[in-house]
Amino acid sequence: METANRSETGEAGETVETVTRHYARSGSLAQSILDIAHRFADGRQPTVGDLAPLDQFHMRGEEATVEFAEMVRPKAGEVCLDLGCGIGGPARWLATHCDVEVLGFDLTESYCQDAAALSRAVGLSERVRFACADATRLPLAEDSVDLVWTQHAAMNVPDKAALYREVARVLKRGGRLALHDIMAGPEGLPHFPVPWASAPEGSFLLSAREIRALLAEAGLEELVWHDHTADALAWVHRRRADIEAGTPRPPGPHLFLGPGFKEMSSNLGRSLEDGRITVHMALLEKP
């Protein structure tokens, strides 16, 4: 699979480096994740289900992925592009539960390597493939994929108009874009650092109104749009209550993403509560 040109210069190249440096800060993750999964699986070979609490790097984790898939209803045999795939959690979930073929693209090389290693460990190398690529310059032919799936990725893309034009280009006629994204709230910038950016230089949020306008300009027809900010807030409050009550915390990314992850998670909750970010799920179609 062709990969994006990584020799970019100027402002765009600096943005790529800012974003990838943030995500690569903890180094290779696959072995740590597999060690944790082995431990919680009593030493047996981990499955996609065992990895799910650890490899879903978005708010509400697997719970949100299940809810998102119920809205999108991927069809068996479809070719799905997971854009901003991270370490491949949703891609593996889709391949296993929806019987689709998944291509996962991400800017961060270490994430792509981890995604491939984790997929090999659960026997999915033939059905889920990963490569480094820029979401605004996809190495795919026109009209080549049935479904573009993206969860918590557009926050790191400065040129969202180019992003959605590329999505429209690679989608087949009648193909769909499924997005689950964090967007700008009315009360100013998020509290930094947050899980997707260490500083404002790596974060590029637009309001839901602005995103919807860009999607329409790209020629994508809106089928469903849901504001899930209240669900995300409830999830934050449940987690906080469990911590305050001393409830044992289930396995999750906090076990391997380093000491800074606690502050990022706290700022995510504060940003939601203060109206600085919102969370949305949507389904659009290329007519």
Results as ranks from 00 to 15, higher is better:
A162L: 11
T96A: 10
H180V: 02
M155R: 06
L140C: 14
V145G: 12
P200R: 06
D143P: 03
G188D: 03
F204P: 10
H180K: 05
A95G: 05
A121F: 01
V102M: 00
T96E: 14
D106C: 06
A178Q: 10
D159P: 06
L177G: 02
R127I: 01
F130L: 06
G185Q: 06
I211W: 12
P190N: 01
L124M: 14
L103C: 00
Y164A: 05
R173G: 02
L214M: 15
L189E: 15
N156K: 07
G123K: 03
V102L: 01
R120D: 12
V167S: 01
S207A: 13
T108V: 05
S125E: 15
A199W: 00
C98I: 01
D143S: 14
H180R: 09
R173L: 02
E210V: 01
L214K: 15
G104W: 00
G86M: 04
G174E: 01
V148I: 12
V170C: 03
P139S: 12
D143R: 10
S110P: 11
A121S: 10
R212A: 12
S125H: 07
V170Q: 04
A216S: 14
S144P: 15
A117M: 11
L107Q: 03
S207M: 07
Q151R: 10
T150F: 10
D146T: 04
Y164G: 05
T96F: 06
G202T: 11
D143A: 14
G123P: 05
V102R: 00
D143K: 04
G84T: 06
Q151N: 12
A154D: 04
L107T: 03
R92A: 06
A162I: 08
V194H: 06
D114V: 09
V122E: 06
A161I: 06
A184T: 04
Y111S: 03
S203Q: 13
G185T: 07
A184D: 06
A131P: 02
S110N: 14
Y111K: 00
V148E: 05
W196L: 04
E217Q: 13
C112M: 12
H152T: 12
R165A: 11
G86D: 07
A208Y: 09
E187S: 13
K172E: 04
K172W: 05
H191I: 00
P195N: 03
R129Y: 06
D181M: 00
A117H: 09
E166W: 00
A208H: 12
M183A: 08
T150Q: 13
A91G: 05
I182G: 05
R209Q: 12
L94G: 11
L124Q: 13
E217H: 07
A178S: 11
D99R: 09
F105Y: 13
L107P: 04
A117K: 12
A95D: 01
L118C: 07
W149S: 08
A154R: 03
H180Y: 09
V102H: 01
P193W: 01
